[in-house]
Amino acid sequence: MNPFAAVGRAFITFLRTAGKLGIFGFHGVRHIFAPPFYMRLIGQQIMSIGYYSLPVVGLTALFTGMVLALQIYIGGSRFNAESLVANIVVLGITRELGPVIGALMVAGRVSAAMAAEIGTMRVTEQIDALTTLSTNPFKYLVAPRLLAATLMMPLLVLIADIIGVMGGYIVGTGKLGFNEATYLQTTYDFLEASDVVSGLVKAAVFGFIIALMGCYHGFHSQGGAQGVGRATTNAVVSASILILFANYLVTELFFSK
């Protein structure tokens, strides 16, 4: 086997997939803004992505905030910076950990579910059936999911931010001996609007990525049950990697001088 040919083939496959994904995303976004609008489906997706992800995102945020407070205290004590717990918890949660960990959890739950559902519809010809019933599958399946995920992730992350900071507060005041009022006042004084806003913008981008990966891999699944399983795995893995990549890009965009 020629190694150059193998690298070339892999590169061409990468470019082809990137192109297909770009076109898929473009059509998905176009159908969000073009009527008819399936409000009932958008509502269902808002419930499924937003409301039903609340427990997992909330618990993750709570424990992340708690462990963050502990770690900062332990690490900070090495150079007499224990007092920075409240500041670093709120900064870490709103800027990074709230959106990123929240999105990774939602990717595992939602992206996989989307890929499995749409993938099953693909292999059982339900997507073809949609077309024969004068219904555009992009409009019916993809657009509501993209819209709902993009709208819901910022809300989820906002709640995750609050719960995460509360987690830090519980450990900070309950275990590390911080004064309750001082902890909250420090958190409030230190927090800037841009910290929260950047996290929410990230969340919207991550939401779009989560739905795009779930829909794309489901839509292109083939080969029966095994194909649907592969689509589900690919959706979660690619969504997770793209979330981390997009996280760097958005951070760079917001905070580079």
């Binding site: 399936y38 059982t124 010809e125 339900q126 059936a129 024969t132 019933l133 004068s134 219904t135």
Partner: peptide, 29 residues
């Protein structure tokens, strides 16, 4: 066009009547 698929291709998430009426509701309003 109307089409009967080999595996029926009914939408699992919808009730039977919603499946039958799908083209009328979504396609023809």
């Amino acid at each position: 066009f109307g089409m009967l698929f080999q595996g029926a291709a009914l939408f699992d998430s919808l009730r039977v009547w919603e499946n039958v009426a799908f083209g009328l509701i979504q396609g023809r309003g």
